[in-house]
Design a protein around this nucleic acid. Structure first.
Length: 425
DNA sequence: TCTGGGGTCCTAGGACCC
DNA sequence: TCTGGGGTCCTAGGACCC
């Protein structure tokens, strides 16, 4: 007897950041909302009713007038809020399904193999999430992850007809969706691949499902081959194991203003190292190499462009913020060139290994110093009193190069001094 | 004046080895 | 005039994702 095919679900929050803001602003239930990226740079989320007016990624300064004209309410990114809301959503999902994989801040794949009434469970998840967190979601169900993505896409596109839950395990429904979806909408098909596929006459998801998988592999890569096979119903991708440590950790930010001097760039890099090393210790990893890079603005044609980075090898794998900061700040001097207007720095921790997975080199000239307890105390104090309470002297408290976010909502759920208040009449 | 941030996976090519 | 073949490991860069 052949084994029953697996069943996957994809749960995706609708306009997640905008929905988070709306939860705490019921007065905006019928008002279009847009959320901006860091530094209030460009559009990264739009409520359903704002989508007709604003495109994803549009620079804020170019569309100010348009936003005002349509009465669209703006928010700066509030990641403390979105991260906390995400945790609530994911915790609830986890409690309702046999297996799950948190795929991004607003999406989770779930394993539904062996469940009798998957549609019923999909609707239940949807109503529970709305009731308990206030966040609306779409649910897609299918025999592969790529098809579940597609089902979810359809659930959102045809919200009114589908009630936000679409199951395409049935081949007739699956084929209807495949025929009626542009290949560019398929998970794994980006701008480049879309152009290639266009040239081969592959226009719809159905065309890709029917394309010869070996030809795709030969011409492009195994990635698109898997995508095609998944569309045709053969599962090539599994649910990922929970809580796998990241293989690289990155902290990069645009500065709130252009920087021309070395000193503030060093401050920024020290700040980013602080954040990156918190993440590193959070997943019990050590880092062997650290990459530091800086660059000027890339868009303005009148601005001189420069970008450079260096990779530094640490004497031994470490999670000590002091060693990493010293190495990174020293590296800034090596890449800094006077005369440019810098807009961004990036700190990347690479060649990570897990604590305890690596063996000291007895003959190395520089031997590890035991700092686990110092770092644990540091993290505990900062965990209790807020990030940056205890920090390297090179990290300023309120730098003038810091992030611009002029329209940020309160951190309703993560700060006692910013709790939601309700006026009772 | 002003255009985000944080990841993953795959591949090609170089270095090195026998 | 003539200059192998096969393998591993590492890294940079491309493409894609949300």
């Amino acid at each position: 007897m052949s084994k029953a095919p697996p069943v996957f679900g994809l749960i995706d929050c609708n306009s997640f950041y905008a929905s988070c803001e709306r939860v705490f602003r019921p007065d905006l239930a019928k008002v279009p909302i847009v959320v901006l990226s860091n530094n209030d740079g460009c559009v990264i989320a739009r409520s359903y009713d704002a989508k007709p007016y604003v495109k994803m990624g549009e620079p804020y300064f170019q569309i100010k007038h348009k936003l005002k004209q349509h009465g669209i309410v703006l928010f700066s990114s509030n990641y403390a809020l979105y991260g906390d809301m995400s945790e609530r959503v994911m915790t609830l999902i986890e409690s309702m399904v046999p297996a799950d994989e948190v795929y991004s801040i607003d999406e989770a794949f779930v394993g539904l193999t062996g469940i009798n009434d998957v549609d019923g469970l999909g609707r239940k998840i949807r109503s529970q999430l709305l009731l308990c967190t206030g966040i609306p979601v779409g649910v897609g169900i299918a025999h592969t992850k790529t098809l579940a993505k597609l089902a979810n896409h359809t659930a959102k596109r045809l919200q009114a007809q589908t009630g936000g839950v679409v199951n395409i395990c049935d081949p007739i429904k699956r084929d209807w969706v495949l025929r009626n979806t542009d290949v560019a909408e398929v998970w794994g098909v980006g701008r480049r691949m879309k152009l290639h596929l266009d040239g081969m006459g592959i226009k719809t998801a159905m065309d890709l499902a029917k394309a010869d998988a070996w030809t795709l592999r030969k011409n492009f890569s195994v990635v698109i081959e898997k995508t095609a096979r998944e569309l045709a119903g053969t599962a090539c991708l599994e649910l990922d194991e929970p809580d796998l440590p990241k293989q690289e950790i990155c902290c990069s930010r645009m500065f709130g203003k252009r920087l021309t001097e070395l000193a503030p760039i060093k401050e920024a890099v020290a700040t980013y190292v602080m954040r990156a090393s918190e993440k590193l210790r959070g997943q019990n990893s050590l880092c062997k190499k650290i990459r530091v890079s800086i660059r000027t603005g890339m868009f303005n044609p009148d601005e001189a462009k420069y970008a450079n980075g260096v990779l530094i090898e640490m004497p031994y794998p470490t999670d000590d913020v002091r060693l990493l900061t010293e190495a990174a700040v020293g590296a800034v001097e090596r890449v800094f060139r006077p005369g440019f207007k810098y807009s961004k720095a990036e700190v990347m921790l690479v060649s990570l290994c897990q604590t305890g997975e690596y063996t000291d080199d007895l003959f190395a000239s520089s031997q590890p110093v035991e700092t686990t307890r110092v770092m644990a105390v540091l993290d505990e104090i900062n965990g209790r009193w807020g990030r940056g309470m205890l920090r390297a002297a090179s990290v300023p408290r309120n730098p003038d190069w810091g992030m611009r976010r002029e329209m940020m909502s309160q951190s309703y759920t993560t700060r006692l001094d910013q709790l939601w208040t309700v006026n009772c009449r």
